[in-house]
Design a protein around this nucleic acid. Sequence first.
DNA 1: ACATTAATTAACAACTTGATAATTGTTAAT
DNA 2: ATTAACAATTATCAAGTTGTTAATTAATGT
Lengths: 248, 248
Amino acid sequence: MTKKYRTPDGYTADIAVFTIVTEESKPFTPPVMSLNLLLIERAKWNAEGELNTEGGKWALPGGFVGVHENALQAAVRELKEETGIDCVHMKHFGIYDEPGRDDRGWIISNAHYAIISEDDLRQIKANDDASDVKLVNINDVLQLELAFDHRQIIYDALSVIKSELLQTTAAKNLLQDEFTYSELQAVLSTVTKDPAILNEQAFARKIKSLPFIEKVEGKTTQRTSKKATQLYRFNEVEVVKPIYTGRY
Amino acid sequence: MTKKYRTPDGYTADIAVFTIVTEESKPFTPPVMSLNLLLIERAKWNAEGELNTEGGKWALPGGFVGVHENALQAAVRELKEETGIDCVHMKHFGIYDEPGRDDRGWIISNAHYAIISEDDLRQIKANDDASDVKLVNINDVLQLELAFDHRQIIYDALSVIKSELLQTTAAKNLLQDEFTYSELQAVLSTVTKDPAILNEQAFARKIKSLPFIEKVEGKTTQRTSKKATQLYRFNEVEVVKPIYTGRY
DNA sequence: ACATTAATTAACAACTTGATAATTGTTAAT
DNA sequence: ATTAACAATTATCAAGTTGTTAATTAATGT
């Protein structure tokens, strides 16, 4: 094949890892949660003692895609290598291919987002020796000094995660398999102000009629209340909510 | 920079061009529409008289991305070159980077969808000398013999266009700037069976309360009815509809 | 004049939902 | 043992939504 066009100098996978953090958790009380993004601080100096490109700035985990894998597989692999996280829910959400976005050449970044639960995170924290990893509340993340075009990537990731959590059943990845209405509500309230979701009575009533959530018959918990609380779980039903219906 | 990984052999942009076609249009009658996808038939033989790769099969328009452009720009350029269409609404929706997806090497495809109105299409039909271009009803398209992994790409494009039309104001690109409730309904009915949208009275009532659509004060048309019909237009309001609210 | 057709309006019942309040079950303090 | 506290749950009400059915309106063509 004769090459009519120059070929790219590299193909990378970057990952926006989102996780939920319980801010307050008194016993018998519904949680107050915040959605956080995992970032890595780039080393100031490289192995040769030279100033590193974009050193000292915060960046998304990621790295180059190998020729025998696709970007999704590379993203899963890189995340495991860099943070020890074995990811469950990883998905492509955007491509960053502006000429000149990386000084090192024509490098195409395939951006992914991952959702991991607080439980998964706890295991990671344990064997975490990389002190250059931190979780940042999604409301603060854009204030940081960010490397490359990661500000744009993160901006896009935030808008993707917000609509994913509200328009799909992605919230299931942030919760235990079985959860109470107030736990689901706590997750959703990190990304919406919709009164139909924030109003307790309305939401407790509503959850029973959602086709993609089912009651776990006879199972309750005292995690969120002294009174035994009904547990629910997501089932496999998929839904699409048109903007042309419902109330405004 | 020492290259730890082999670099890709090519970066292409493919485009799923969607357009609306009015199937029936008696005067004074609301339209019956279908959503169609534009495909190109690959030549059986190349310039040297040899059998062409995937020749005779149907494929999405597209081509290689140049080093001085991003894939979106390449997609717009290629579409113009191959079909004469000057695109308005073009957007990335997916990446196809499976090793081995293209015999010619490690080629990454950046897939886009475009939405063009019937009006735009009419201008193209005029100066169309490429008889190898056709529009296929989205309900029939997966029955065709498709080149490369375009079956998968088209499958994904269909699901993207369907949710875009229902969950965003993308329908505006398939309509004139000012439209009647029944024209909008005709567009939406190509992708949904939701009674809240298909029921005429309900939808005519509803359209008045949608925050992202406004009445064009005092303007009417007789396109769809003998009786003068109110015209509406989209405004700039953005909305997100959570799956956790509304009726099921 | 009359039938036809689509748009529009009306009316009704069933359902949704925000607000308010009452009830229930459990814990912890008195 | 009694009581306060509190989340969950249930109840009630008013306002709004929506599927259905029907009536009304306006323009056209016979």
